[in-house]
Design a protein around this nucleic acid. Structure first.
Length: 574
DNA sequence: GCCGTTTTCGGCCCGACTGTTTTCAGTCG
């Protein structure tokens, strides 16, 4: 049984216990579920290797939950869970995913109307039965119907890369408003998560009514859920929910800290404050009624005895402890990347010529790019064979000469995105690969091999003495395609052993490697490259998302090879 | 049910908004 399934069951148990109005246990199960969801290793493997004790060592898992996990791993099911489901036969995860529907309402709806799932709920709402229940009303009924509709049409989250330009537009518009003293985007966007659920905007102002008026009159607004002087919630036309909070300037830092999250980070921080007889809320850090800090985030963290961890790593996974010991990692800076090691051109499936790509890269501040068109077995892109590759090498030599004459300080390096065949061999001859500056290798077919076969295949490719970088190592497309089944631990091990670089693909649809694997690779001493995988001259700004991904994986400048000038970068390759 | 540089027992984040039960419970973030 996979971690994903185990954590889902633990979450569900938490929800059942919540509906049954049992105290504190729901959060214990939720915590354990979260912990397991974010484990790098499979619980089944942990159990196999270290037994019951090792499972109990997982944070948030004690004797009781460890026993349940043991039963799940051993038998594939859990009697306790089955019993809960029988005692309250409702699709609890389904119902609680509806906006406005919580444990209390689920219980009421089941007791009065025998509502078991979304379809029952929709029927009950449409026939006006919900409004008849004491404590509920017409508006609740409407809200439920709206919630169901939303869940059906756009239940998923938004890709950060697709939403960020629009968000910055709104941010700048607010910044230019004279009633606005300070503005910031908080939440998952500030943490630069791969996908975001909603938009949290924070404003410091002495005239909140004016700010709210302006906000709800913006052209992007589709619907206003609620409007207050401190908090307004809206739905944007693109389907994104947005919250605007207005706070006094003296509380701006506290609010920014609070709304940036994530939730676990904040809970741990508040408990820490409590232990020092302080109270932390979105208005500040307090000793009794005395405001200790609140104007800036920095002064809040400082008053708690630490530097502020970068938002990207605020996940309560060691950053607070590191900060308390003054050992926060110096993670890579957003301007730290000097070159792009995966760039496509119109020689295959890119839109622009080599020269156009080079000039566009230079405009965004890069010092060099590697041209990495596809190779011959990727027929749909018109992949290059040995002969064409040699021709491209000659073309790049010419362009570099041209740049030199023009006194342009920019270097185009020669490379390829070489296709890994089913058996792990490469589709370009070694003697031609040897003439390239950078050889990227990648899987583009046979995604459905068994874990063992897929891992062996990729490991074999990595062992090729010309294979410098493994591009988009797990092949996932966020919200579209799951990663292929591969043992990433083994890939990391092989990377270390062979000196193969692992890529952090910055394309917002890929962001591959994932943050947890980046952290793992970094701590194993494996070097990484952040590449845009650009197929057009307009895609170099993807670098930001790649850097964000690397930051979330605690990667430092030194861990990323293309933070170096190109000559030094090349020295780190095989 | 979990956890501990206050604790192996006694705690568990906390404030805003809505709807409805006119003084507050439920939900959310």
């Amino acid at each position: 049984m996979k971690n994903e399934e185990i954590s889902k069951i633990l979450y569900e148990i938490g929800e059942y216990l919540g509906v049954k109005e049992i105290q504190f246990k729901p959060r214990a199960y939720e915590k354990a579920g979260y912990s397991i969801e974010n484990l790098e290793e499979e619980v089944s493997e942990i159990y196999e290797k270290g037994g019951f004790k090792a499972v109990e060592d997982i944070p948030g898992v004690g004797v009781s939950i460890a026993k349940k996990i043991e039963e799940l791993v051993k038998t594939g099911h859990l009697k306790y869970y089955e019993k809960l489901k029988k005692s309250l036969p409702v699709k609890i995860d389904e119902l609680s995913s509806i906006e406005g529907v919580g444990p209390k309402m689920i219980l009421k709806l089941y007791k009065k109307l025998k509502v078991k799932d979304i379809n029952d709920l929709e029927k009950a709402a449409k026939t006006g039965k919900i409004a008849e229940i004491a404590g509920l009303g017409k508006k609740t009924e409407e809200k439920i119907l709206k919630g169901i509709e939303f869940l059906r049409q756009s239940g998923n989250r938004f890709l950060l890369g697709l939403i960020l330009p629009r968000v910055r537009l709104i941010e700048n518009r607010l910044r230019n408003l004279k009633e606005v003293d300070r503005v910031a985007i908080a939440g998952s966007i500030r943490r630069m998560q791969e996908t975001i659920g909603d938009l949290d905007i924070l404003v410091a102002s002495k005239k909140p009514e004016k700010v709210m008026d302006f906000f709800i009159s913006m052209p992007e607004i589709a619907h206003v859920y609620s409007r207050g002087d401190t908090k307004t919630m809206v739905r944007l036309k693109n389907g994104l929910d947005a919250d605007l909070r207005v706070v006094p300037d003296r509380s701006f830092g506290a609010a920014l800290q609070y709304f940036t999250g994530d939730k676990r980070h904040n809970i741990t921080l508040r408990i820490l404050a409590g232990k020092r007889e302080l109270k932390l809320n979105e208005y500040g850090l307090w000793r009794g009624k005395k405001l200790i800090a609140g104007r800036t985030e920095e002064e809040i963290y400082e008053s708690l005895g630490m530097a502020a961890p970068p938002p990207e790593i605020r996940t309560d996974s060691g950053e607070i402890q590191a900060a308390l010991k003054n050992k926060l990692p110096q993670i890579i800076d957003y301007r730290g990347v000097k070159g792009d090691l995966q760039v496509m051109t119109n020689w295959t499936d890119g839109e622009n010529s080599i020269e156009e790509m080079a000039l566009a890269a230079q405009e965004t501040g890069l010092e060099y790019i590697v041209i990495t068109d596809h190779t011959k077995s990727l027929a749909m892109t018109g992949g290059l064979d040995e002969k064409k590759l040699l021709k491209q090498i000659a073309e790049i030599d010419k362009l570099n000469l041209k740049f030199k004459i023009k006194n342009l300080k920019f270097r185009i390096l020669k490379g390829a995105e070489v296709n890994i065949l089913k058996d792990g061999s490469l589709d370009i001859k070694d003697e031609v690969l040897a003439r390239l500056d950078v050889v990227g290798v990648a899987v583009h077919s046979h995604f459905n091999l068994s874990r063992n076969e897929q891992t062996k295949r990729i490991v074999k490719a990595m062992r090729n003495k010309n294979a410098d970088i493994l591009f988009h190592p797990t092949g996932r497309l966020i919200q579209k395609r799951a990663p292929y089944d591969v043992d990433v631990e083994e890939i990391i091990k092989t990377a270390k052993e062979t000196g193969t670089i692992l890529e952090v693909d910055a394309d917002p649809h890929r962001l591959d490697l994932k943050d947890e694997y980046i952290r793992k690779a970094v701590s194993a001493g494996v070097k990484l490259a952040i590449d845009t995988d650009a197929h057009s001259k307009n895609s170099f700004h993807y670098l930001e998302f790649g850097v964000a991904q690397a930051r979330r994986g605690w990667a430092k400048k030194d861990d990323i090879i293309n933070t170096r000038p190109w000559r030094e970068m090349l020295k780190l390759l095989k």
